[in-house]
Design a protein around this nucleic acid. Structure first.
Lengths: 216, 216
DNA sequence: GACGGTAGATTGACACTGTCAAATGACGTT
DNA sequence: AACGTCATTTGACAGTGTCAATCTACCGTC
């Protein structure tokens, strides 16, 4: 066998290219992420990235993977720091929204422009996506077990996630043009979630599980 | 003066092109919306659309405008049909989510792929976006006046919108892979919003307005 | 130490895109 | 009947992602 690219060298090039791609996306948007530009900035030829990634979509997928990993780490840190169920759920929510606020371009890349990604995401990406959901799920489960809320943990997690993602997404789409800053709105949403649980803990029926047949 | 394109003919071509663009977007994604393909499907030459639209971005902008208009109309119909403040708010939320569920590609186009649109949106588009917000704002305001919730109507509207958009957006991104259907999750969210208000109406302090200084 | 094979990088080429300039076409007016 | 003008078409260009063929430099072997 002849000389082969060391694992380290492969990883180095991959991370370096991901960093450049992320930076260019943040600066010039998706249109600025072009194989030629990335390669120029890295000092290699246009098709060299094809040794390390299958596609352009594959490159973006790697950036997304890193994004979900950092989001998961932020959530996990929040979970570790807060044992109380109610406060933990708030802390996870805050960590989620803080991530979206601090790394807006990463968050955008993670959730938007879906067609630019390969239809079959990497196993690694799917794993990180799941990992980023776990702190939410576990926090909700803990809250359910503590009697703070009632209902299916999965459904409740989805609702929680939707509330958080909605705030982040609308903010990034610049649809929230009130006087409130993103941080204020984030805190308002977290507070609202906490109040929801405090009030739900005083009542018996589960808030979902069956779609009510309520007509006008 | 010589013959000039009649208003009707211009409008016809524009709407026809928008319809084709929307259909191709739904079928092939953004990559399927190409001036060549649109023109072929319309039986004209590649650059003919440039007589009726400034840009490709302008075409997508027109499709988006129509989408926001239909969303606004659906919301307004829901408002008209339901006078009771609480039920009206639920009805608007249901109409919003039903629209997202029934026209997923339109909704996606309205809120995603922001870089593909002109940085300065048309006045018409901005008007329709605002129009689609008004039923939410007015429903929230009515609920505030009825004493169902307390707080800044703008902030509360943003939170409501975020909750709705979050459900729709995560669903369209295919991130919600639980057993629940989109309809069930929508109803769960609407129910949760209603419960939030019912519980809030029994208490005095406003749920936001000031970010609470709660520490662990 | 020279050589050959091969992994890795490069260049060339292709089909495709959005968009502009110039050329073509057709119609109402004089 | 000829003109002028608007609508449309064609030609062209820069730029894209990606594949094939080429080149380069290193390794193990003699």
């Amino acid at each position: 066998m002849s000389r082969v690219l060391s694992e380290q060298a492969v990883a180095d090039f991959r991370t370096k290219l991901c960093r450049v791609a992320a930076r260019r996306f943040a600066e010039f948007g998706y249109a600025g992420v072009t194989l030629r530009a990335l390669s120029d900035e890295l000092g290699c030829s246009r098709t060299t990235p094809y040794r390390y990634f299958r596609d352009k979509a594959d490159i973006l997928g790697a950036v997304r993977t890193q994004g979900f990993r950092r989001l998961a780490e932020a959530e996990e840190a929040a979970v570790r720091a807060e044992p109380d169920p109610l406060l933990r759920l708030q802390a996870v929510g805050r960590a989620y929204l803080r991530f979206a606020g601090e790394e807006p371009d990463n968050y955008r890349l993670m959730f938007e422009v879906p067609e630019k990604f390969s239809p079959a995401p990497t196993a690694e990406l799917r794993a990180e996506v799941q990992r980023s959901q776990r702190p939410l799920i576990e926090s909700v489960q803990a809250a359910v077990e503590a009697g703070l809320i009632h209902g299916s943990p999965t459904t409740l997690t989805h609702l929680l996630w939707a509330a958080l993602h909605g705030v982040a997404s609308l903010h990034l789409a610049e649809k929230l043009t009130s006087g409130r800053t993103f941080e204020e709105l984030s805190e308002a949403m977290v507070t609202l979630i906490a109040r929801q649980m405090q009030s739900a803990s005083n009542e018996r029926p589960s808030p979902n599980e069956r779609s009510p047949d309520k007509e006008s």
